[in-house]
Design a protein around this nucleic acid. Structure first.
Length: 379
DNA sequence: GCAAATGTCGCCGTTTGA
DNA sequence: CGGATCAAACGGCGACAT
């Protein structure tokens, strides 16, 4: 039987900010919003922080401290909305450079104890402990100590025979959790939970299951496979059934290549496709340039350029175009993206514009083997 | 009036090439 | 030559995740 750990950093962005501003410990702190001010440091060294109540804009909460969560402020909530619940909470802008730095630090620290790691974004990982000696609890304690030593940050760890269960149980005792779970515990500890706790069941599936009278994982485990299949199709139905029974054979994947690189932006106000044409055009070009820069910096060429639009009513559309040759050139990207844009009827104001590069291939410097232009026209 | 940014994956209908 | 068929690629889009 495998031994898989899932490690989730506790309130990661907020906790990183607390390292920088220790005086905020114990307070409701929210990370998020856009273009708000950094804290101002006075002559006497004391800092002035902005408060939620002062925020104006369309940003969302990215993370909050547990104190802020106690007031009802959670990730994904509009900052304006959260200000009504916790007007005095401190608001800090996200600093991804800092979070990436601490992300590298904690992953490197884990690797000193257990090297088989799957990256799952900036603040969580899976770890395969199967081939290590030692008790699971001892290993988990060692990992947590290594993370705290390297970063000063806390995390929660779940250990079980697979990724599905470990992901669920790392969340059961947050913060600073350490949860072991084996197959005999599924009935008592997993089945009472809402289906939403299963990684992969989102708002849509939860809603649909609810209409079928399925709310908990126990309900799902007991559901008639024929009923599930009728509503979700064979593939999704069999996955739902397996998941409810704690079955998951996915390996821990230690290497992966990016599939797409994208940039998008939500405007401060909804923009009119014609009246605001010049602003839009500028933003569009900027997005293309940034995607091109990202591609070059990361060493990729893209064969499929796509755009994403979000209208004032929140409807989202995408269009793609595959090119004959892969590129990382801003002008070529802009041309392709413009072609995509022509295919979208623009009857509404826009709130978001995005540019994406997919079908990525590593850049190969072949300057030495370049073929002279004229060959193609010679008959 | 409120709802970010970035990324992955699966499904499906259509097109294309053999 | 026309038709059947099949796989791969493409494009759109929804769902989900952090």
């Amino acid at each position: 039987m495998r031994r898989i750990a899932h490690l989730d950093m506790d309130a990661f962005y907020a906790s990183v900010e607390l390292l920088r501003y220790p005086e905020l410990r114990g307070q409701a702190v929210v990370i998020g919003g856009r273009r708000q001010h950094q804290p101002v440091t006075d002559a006497d060294g004391s800092r002035q922080f902005s408060r939620l109540r002062d925020y104006v804009g369309r940003g969302v909460v990215t993370t909050s401290t547990y104190e802020a969560r106690a007031l009802g402020v959670f990730s994904g909530m509009g900052v304006m909305k959260s200000a009504q619940l916790a007007p005095d909470a401190i608001l800090l802008p996200a600093d991804f450079t800092a979070y990436r730095h601490y992300s590298r630090l904690f992953k490197a620290a884990v690797a000193t104890v257990a090297p088989c790691i799957e990256d799952r974004g900036i603040d969580e990982i899976y770890i395969d402990l199967s081939n290590l000696d030692g008790e699971s609890v001892a290993l988990a304690r060692q990992i947590k100590a290594a993370v705290r030593d390297a970063t000063g940050l806390g995390c929660s760890i779940g250990i079980s025979p697979n990724k599905l269960l470990s992901k669920i149980c790392s969340d059961l005792e947050k913060p600073d959790g350490l949860t072991l779970l084996d197959v005999d515990d599924i009935e008592t500890r997993i089945w009472p939970l809402p289906v939403r706790k299963i990684n992969g069941i989102g708002p849509r599936a939860t809603e649909k299951l609810a209409t079928l009278g399925i709310a908990t994982i126990a309900d799902l485990a007991a559901a008639d496979p024929v009923l599930l299949q009728a509503h979700f199709g064979p593939s999704l139905a069999s996955w739902l059934h397996a998941a409810a029974h704690g079955i998951d054979q996915r390996p821990v994947v230690t290497h992966s290549e990016p599939r797409s690189i994208s940039r998008e932006t939500t405007f401060e106000r909804d923009l009119h496709p014609r009246r605001d044409r010049s602003v839009l055009s500028e933003i569009f070009t900027e997005l293309c340039t940034r995607v091109a820069d990202d591609l070059r910096r990361k060493g990729y060429l893209s064969r499929t350029i796509g755009i994403k639009l979000r209208f004032e009513d929140f409807r989202t559309v995408t269009r793609d175009l595959s090119l004959p040759v892969a590129t990382a050139d801003a002008i070529a990207i802009r041309r392709a993206a413009t072609d995509c844009l022509r295919r979208v009827p623009l009857n509404q104001r826009l709130r978001l514009l995005g540019v994406r590069a997919g079908s990525l291939a590593p850049t190969r410097d072949e300057t030495a083997t370049e073929i002279p232009l004229q060959t193609e026209l010679r008959l």
